[in-house]
Design a protein around this nucleic acid. Structure first.
Lengths: 206, 206
DNA sequence: CCAAAACGTGAGCAATAACTCACATATTGA
DNA sequence: TCAATATGTGAGTTATTGCTCACGTTTTGG
């Protein structure tokens, strides 16, 4: 049994869809992948099942994705990109306000981001650890942390690197847990997360 | 493609090891499983690899575990049992003290529990979602929440059910994140977690 | 000492799944 | 109109892996 190669080029690129029907095929594949990831996890995520559920042939799948990992990698990339947009928007809008308000905006953006389909959010987060991400995917992760660090630094928080990581872990944990057990009152959730985050930073909640 | 059967009896039991060498075999299997889970995740966790790494034959493996899921289920059960012990001990020792001190003891127990081999802790937490746990495993999870709820209730915290879940998510997230990125200063970590938890509960840190 | 029970072995069966390829159909641009 | 290009197909190849079973070895109890 040969040991897994430590790092290999994340994915030899395949062709991009040029016609509308090709884009529809790609969309069907990612949709089907989402459903299967939620239902079965990365275990049980196989290209034959994805193709069948998407209503396309495996051959079509491999025209646009070089391997099954790349499907997940692309989904993770897209999700990270959406979160980053949300956070950047919140950062800009609340640029002039005090820390509690700015933080509240970031937390709200994170909750909104996970709220749509929390099971998929969780499945992708788990799967992200098992596949080689694209360069862009990794860069997005760093950019997300950057936003948080910038906001904290602007408000004179000390030990910004650790604080950003801690706050991200804290929020992810609480939000994920609450949404997965079916909580729908996002205002209440937001308030609870803010109590914890404010306590961490030693400030009063907004 | 037949749909996965929703719920089947978690595991038909196999024989228990009676002689010392049999116990050694079982231990070798769980040790090997730990290494493989850490290195490859539940993906890449296969019985042939486990047996080879353990230095036993697959046949021996299947004498004590009815299927590969049951190996993980047993590891999860054992880990939950250890955490529960730690929490119960902390609960008893700090029974007479105020909430900040009692909470600090619980947090310390949780950190100590994850500290030994954080990668394995994380791998097991992830894998736990993918295998049917034994009844005992599920009961242990409930018991862990119970300890937290008892402590909170004793100190007149409101909304104990939600608070217990939130605190558990919050701690898990922060502790996991910090230990996985190699943090070794557990006292500092404990202080940061306590700031967040205290803020959540609206009390002063210990 | 010896039979029965416990333990250990590993080749190999059957199922699954990643991925290819030879070929068919649809669309486009001139 | 029609070739070039894009897209779609799915049976088949190859490798992996969960698990069994027929058999050998070690330990135990009387």
């Amino acid at each position: 049994m040969p040991v897994k190669i430590s790092v290999q080029p994340p994915a030899k690129p395949r062709k991009k869809p040029r016609q509308a029907r090709a884009q529809a095929t790609v969309d069907a594949i990612t949709q089907a992948s989402a459903h299967i990831l939620v239902a079965q996890g990365f275990e049980g995520f196989n290209t034959n099942a994805v193709a069948e559920r998407a209503g396309v042939s495996v051959g079509s799948l491999y025209q646009y994705f070089p391997n099954k990992e790349s499907i997940v990698a692309e989904m993770v990339r897209a999700k990270r990109a959406r979160l980053l947009s949300g956070l950047q928007a919140a950062e800009v809008v609340h640029q002039e306000e005090e820390l509690p308000e700015a933080l509240a905006a970031l937390v709200a953006a994170t909750i909104a981001h996970q709220k749509g389909w929390p099971q998929l959010s969780q499945a992708l987060d788990r799967a992200a650890a098992l596949v080689p991400l694209s360069e862009e995917g990794a860069a997005l992760t760093a950019a997300i942390l950057d936003v948080l660090q910038r906001v904290l630094r602007r408000h004179a928080v000390t030990d910004v690197e650790v604080a950003a990581l801690d706050l991200l872990s804290l929020c992810r944990g609480m939000i994920d847990g609450a949404l997965l057990r079916g909580e729908t009152d996002t205002a209440a959730l937001q308030a609870r997360v803010m109590r914890a985050a404010s306590g961490y930073l030693g400030i009063a909640a907004a």
